[in-house]
């Protein structure tokens, strides 16, 4: 016996639901839609929902699904537990009171939710029945679904930007690659180059830098020199203020 059927048995309301024709969950727009279907098709009073019966019918519907899409299952299961919680609250001997001492029907909240949703469900139908461009009415030579239609430029707002971005994403196949280019120069290589130069004797810094033009090369070279200096492989000597700076190999200097 399935879990849902077991719960239904617990509530003793399994038989009436047998009379209901089977339905598929994907015909519904969520748990409220299912409940409204059950309530309206059996001409029940939304303010006075027979919770036990509705719960067992609801669980029967969930149970009848071959597989429940995890994406949507959550909301349906939350409603199942809400219904069972309602039932248990109704079974409590002492009625619930609000701040003013009036009796509170635990089902009131669900009824309000159902009525609110039902309103929009109706309005959605009303909207759908309105004559719609491209379906019921047509303007001169424009067929909205056609690609050849020239569309007016979107207004320059956030949505237009998002739309443009989405279109770009579509064009690149929904995949955005972030390219990281590896350095064309490495500090380590440049360190070797500096040492190579120095092995032929000390050099002036400005001459050395002039021989290696380009921003990237300059930065790498300076980093290489600093690194070599830190490692005590070379020394950097400036004999006077604002004077030229010489680089020397450590061994040569000592």
């Amino acid at each position: 016996m399935s879990e849902a059927a077991a719960v239904a048995d617990l509530f003793g309301g399994a038989e009436p639901s047998l009379a209901l024709p089977p339905v598929q969950l994907d015909q519904f727009e969520g748990p409220l839609d299912v409940l409204l279907h059950l309530i309206r098709s059996q001409k029940m009073e939304v303010f006075d929902i027979p919770i036990a019966m509705i719960t067992s019918q609801y669980l029967d519907i969930l149970d009848a699904q071959v597989e429940l899409d995890l994406e949507v299952a959550g909301d349906y299961l939350v409603m199942a537990s809400t219904l069972m919680q309602l039932k248990s609250r109704l079974l409590l001997p002492r009625p619930e009171m609000d701040d003013e001492g009036n009796e509170v029907d635990p089902r009131a909240e669900l009824a309000a939710q159902l009525i609110a949703y039902e309103q929009y469900r109706m309005l959605a139908e009303d909207l759908n029945e309105r004559p719609r461009i491209g379906r019921d009415v047509f303007t001169r030579s424009i067929f909205p679904e056609s690609d050849e239609v020239e569309r007016p430029l979107p207004e320059g707002d956030l949505d237009a930007l998002l739309l443009a971005f989405r279109n770009v994403l579509k064009r690149v196949g929904g995949e955005v690659r972030h390219h990281i280019f590896s350095d064309t120069m490495s500090v380590r290589e440049q360190m070797t180059a500096v040492l190579e130069q120095l092995s032929h004797g000390g050099i002036q810094l400005d001459e050395f830098l002039l021989a290696n033009p380009g921003r990237e090369v300059l930065v790498t070279t300076i980093l290489a020199i600093l690194e070599l200096w830190r490692q005590q492989t070379i020394t950097v000597v400036q004999s006077e203020n604002y004077g030229s700076i010489s680089l020397l190999l450590k061994e040569a200097a000592s």
């Binding site: 309206r40 098709s41 001409k43 469900r121 109706m122």
Partner: peptide, 13 residues
């Protein structure tokens, strides 16, 4: 057994 809920929905509200 009443399965044609559509008409019912509107009048109820």
């Amino acid at each position: 057994e009443e399965n044609s809920q559509q008409g019912e929905v509107g009048s109820e509200a």
